[in-house]
Amino acid sequence: MTTLILHRTGPGTSVQDLGRSGYLAQGLSRGGAADPIALAEGAALLNQPPALAALEIVSSIEVEVTEPTWIALTGAPKKASRDGQPLSWNACHRLAPGQRLTLGAATEGNYAYLHLAGGIETPQQVGGRGAHLTAGLGPTLSDGMRLPIGPPPAPVQRERALPSEDRFGGGEIRVLAGPQTGLFPAEVLERFLATPFIRTAWGNRQGVKLGHEGEGFRPAGGLDLMSEVIVPGDIQVTGDGTPYVLGPECQTIGGYPRIATVAPQDLPRVMQATPGARLRFRMVTLEEALASHRAIERVHEDASGQLQAQEANPYHNLMVHNLISGVAIDIFDNKDET
């Protein structure tokens, strides 16, 4: 079996998949990749299902493989190199045994993903391979650890790349009214929707703290609430009026009032927003949110369709080529193409 060797793995690196659904009543939140869109993009690049596990990376790492393996790099762009040679991002590459893949500091965003053809095949626990850090599920990674890689479900013929979708600069985030939105006075809700927020450096897989100027956002009457079910994307407001957007590993119940809920398709943009990025919320109806929603399977299909369209274009591979004297030289096949 092919093995991934972790020579250096920084804090926050974990195995992640699409999470564990159906366990909320047992006190286990979904978990899974902080940016499932990046998971789907990497799977498309490697011709495999989006449910396969990958490495989620928030710092720097250095790895190698024991057998020739195709890899893909997606999510928050990092400085990437193979034995010192720079590698393009949002693209797939071939890694030979003994070659060192190094991922350095992120240039923007927070969560990067290293995908391997065949996926990481750590043992399943409670229906998933990914680490749920707060629940203690999944492997705890350390330097020198070896992770098994499964057999590739489909061949990869050459290096290729996908256009990079900007999920790292903040911007407008769509939100839905929830069961507790009405507890906030109309003027507080209006002020919340008109306020430019800052994505603070305080954030992890459980949630993200939002910074802002001015007074906080409190419900009417200083209500004491019974703990209720909460889900990723809920925007809780603490006692001092500070909003927090809950992430994939949020708790399953909570007593802080929730002013709104981020639409699922926009939650990766909140999780990936570079600290200091500005965020602004816009209330939409359920019908509007559903009209723009894409399930991860659809994201995967759309990315695969883009790659197929590129393959039909004789110049599709220029994104992973070097251009020298007007001749495109394929850095994988090492053949001249005129």
Rank of each mutant, 00 (worst) to 15 (best):
M271V: 01
G239Q: 03
T242L: 02
A289F: 03
E288W: 10
Q306F: 14
G247R: 02
T261N: 09
T285I: 06
C250Y: 02
V237W: 08
V245I: 15
N204Y: 05
I230Y: 13
L225G: 12
K209D: 02
E287H: 11
A263D: 06
D302M: 14
T242D: 01
M283C: 14
T238N: 14
F197P: 05
H316F: 15
E215C: 01
A291L: 08
G233I: 08
A201P: 03
Y256K: 07
L307M: 13
R218F: 09
I253W: 00
I296F: 11
R294M: 13
A194R: 08
L279K: 01
Y315F: 15
D266E: 10
A273M: 10
L246T: 01
G207L: 13
W202Q: 07
N313G: 10
D234I: 00
A309Q: 15
R278D: 00
S227D: 10
L225K: 07
L286E: 14
T252I: 10
Y315H: 14
L225D: 07
S292H: 09
P264A: 03
S304Y: 05
D266P: 04
M271S: 11
L307A: 12
P264E: 06
Y256T: 05
P275Q: 05
I259G: 08
T242H: 00
V245K: 06
E213H: 00
C250G: 09
P232T: 03
A220Q: 14
Y244S: 06
Q308F: 10
N317R: 15
I198G: 00
N313S: 09
R282F: 10
T200M: 10
Q251R: 13
E215M: 03
G276L: 05
H316D: 15
D302I: 14
E288L: 02
A312N: 07
A309P: 09
T195P: 02
R205N: 10
S304E: 11
A263T: 08
I198K: 01
I235D: 04
Q310I: 15
V237A: 07
G241W: 04
R278P: 01
I253F: 07
Y244D: 00
L279Q: 00
V245T: 11
A295I: 10
P314M: 02
R205W: 08
T238Q: 05
R294G: 09
T285W: 09
A201T: 06
M283Q: 12
E213G: 13
V270Q: 06
E311R: 15
M271F: 07
Q306C: 15
Y244F: 14
A201E: 06
H293E: 03
K209C: 04
L246F: 13
R199W: 13
A291Q: 07
K209T: 11
P314D: 03
Q236A: 12
N204C: 04
A201K: 02
I259M: 06
R199A: 15
R258P: 01
T200Q: 11
S292Q: 13
S227C: 06
G233T: 09
V262I: 07
L210S: 08
